[in-house]
Each structure stands twice: as C-alpha cells, then as structure tokens.
Write a protein that binds this DNA or RNA. Structure first.
Lengths: 140, 140
DNA sequence: CGCATTCGTAACTATAATAGTTACAGATGC
DNA sequence: GCATCTGTAACTATTATAGTTACGAATGCG
C-alpha cells in the first residue's frame, strides 16, 4: 500500500470542482486550497482525466471540471484512478522454494489480500463526491 | 498506507512457528524460508512479541514460538502488531484555511478513512493463522 | 496574427520509509 | 567457560513521493 496522500488530495480536488459547478477551475487555484504546488495538482488531474472523471481545457479561461455529476463519482473511482493497483503488498523477495511454507504462502496470502482489497473498494464505493460536498456544506 | 512487506513477512513467520508446533525456531531458520536477513526477521519477531503473539528465548536451543494457539491469532492481530496505525493517509500539508473546502475536508475525509480502515480490520479478523496453515497443508 | 493563459510532461532535487548489513551486549543452557 | 541466540544500534542502499523549474503545445481573445 502506498504511503501517499494522492487519494486524499484527489478527493479534495474533485470536491472543489463539484463546488465550482460548471466553472472551470485552473490548477493554480486548486493548489492554493490544497496548499501545494500546481504541478502536483496537474499530475493528479491528469490521472483523473485518464479515468474520465474530469475534463480539462488548456488556454486562457481554461481549467478542469467534472466529467459527470458529482453523485455519479464514487471514492472507489477516485481510488482506482490515483492509486492504481492493489494496496496490500506481498513479499519483496520470493520465499524459499525449499520450504513447504515458502512454496505456498504466496498463493494463500494472495487470496487474503485480494479479499481485503475488495473490502476496501466496497467501502469506498458507498460514498460519492456529492456526499462529501453535502457534508462540507450541510446548508446549501 | 505503508509500502512495506512487513505484514506479508509477519504472516509467513507466524505460519512457520505454527507449523513447528512447540519446537522453538530461531531467526536464522526463518530468514532462510523468507529469503531475507535474520535481523529483519528479529525486528518483526520483536514487534510480534510486544503484541504478545510470540515468545522468544535467547541462548542455545532458543528461538521463538507462538504465544497462543494458532486458531486464536487473527491476521488483524498481526496487522496491528507490525503496521501499527491507520493505512489510509490524509494530506501532508494542512489544506488552506482560507477556503471553505480546505477548512472542512480533513474532518470529512477522516470519517471516510476511519470507516475504510475498520473494513480492512474486519476482513483480516476473519482469518486465523490456523486457517493459513490449513491452506498450506490441506492434508494433515 | 500575436499574445497571454493554461495544460501536460520532462527533468531534477529533497525527503522519508523500508530493507539489508555488520556489530555487539546480554541472556541462556550445556 | 563457551557456543548459541535474542535485542538493538548504527550505517548504507533502494525506492516512492512530493516539490520545483522549465518548456512545448493547445486555446481563446483582441
């Protein structure tokens, strides 16, 4: 599992875009709210664009906006877009083939880790960007 | 979430100890099966000892063994022992206090991440070291 | 057209976590 | 006494992430 804050930042970014509605928001503006560098934001926006969660436009008056309604974007979508594969890691070195435990442990652990990752994704799938926005602005 | 293999290695270690039954296993033997250095194993055994999952004895004929029955040690116990706190991370820098989203996003995300970590632990709690051993050695 | 704006991305640096390695004090049992 | 084994310190190597500067290309506007 990554020791990254990309997921947290990505949720923040999409919440800002949802907040802005149809107005495109540029990376510099987002960077101020997140309190980081605009390139870091553009890298994350790029990943979100590849996952079809946002659209971006270069040029004057450009920026990014949600590619679909905020209640159709789940945290699982965001997680997959910025964290990619599985979170829980296997051994680095292959365990010994000489040992009965070493030979089989990878397969057995693999099953456990897949189940765990599935649980993470199921949990994240229950919350949408619209839910996050609603909690930030309880009274619209 | 850590980018470590400590959890995988720790499960491997406890599986070996369960396999060995009452025979103490020394760190050098474990290191061969895991295919790493004995100090790395001792560091993990030390964490498992602090969590009361194993007991270790120095001296000739010493080594480590399970502190309780393999069916009373869950993967959640192991996870907590070697990975410590929460897996899913927040922002590094505090978001801007000037922005309504920045002000509140940490609280909202914090709730989501707590829920997600709870789901991870619930999933891991369903499997014991004995279950792992049974899958490795289906016919006892 | 010319120009300011903005994205996408490369290249580099800085920081931090992890694993691996050597070394050694202290406990243990024969 | 002595070989064995744990616990831990100290150091290096590797890797991931974030941050920063820079620049080409797309865009829209006067």
């Amino acid at each position: 599992m990554p020791t990254s804050s990309r997921f947290a930042v990505a949720v923040h970014v999409l919440t800002l875009l949802a907040w802005a509605g149809d107005e495109p928001v540029n990376s510099a503006t987002v960077a101020v709210s997140v309190n980081t560098n605009a390139v870091v934001i553009r890298r994350i926006l790029c990943a979100l664009g590849r996952a079809r969660l946002v659209t971006s436009q270069p040029g004057a008056g450009g920026g990014s906006r949600l590619a679909r309604r905020a209640d159709r974007i789940t945290l699982r979508d965001i997680y997959r877009a910025v964290e990619g594969g599985d979170s829980f890691l296997m051994h680095r070195q292959r365990p010994s083939r000489r040992c009965p435990v070493g030979v089989n442990i990878e397969d057995v652990l693999g099953g456990v880790l897949r189940t765990t990752n599935a649980a993470v994704e199921q949990t994240l799938a229950r919350t949408t960007v619209a839910d996050i926005v609603a909690q930030i602005r309880p009274c619209t």
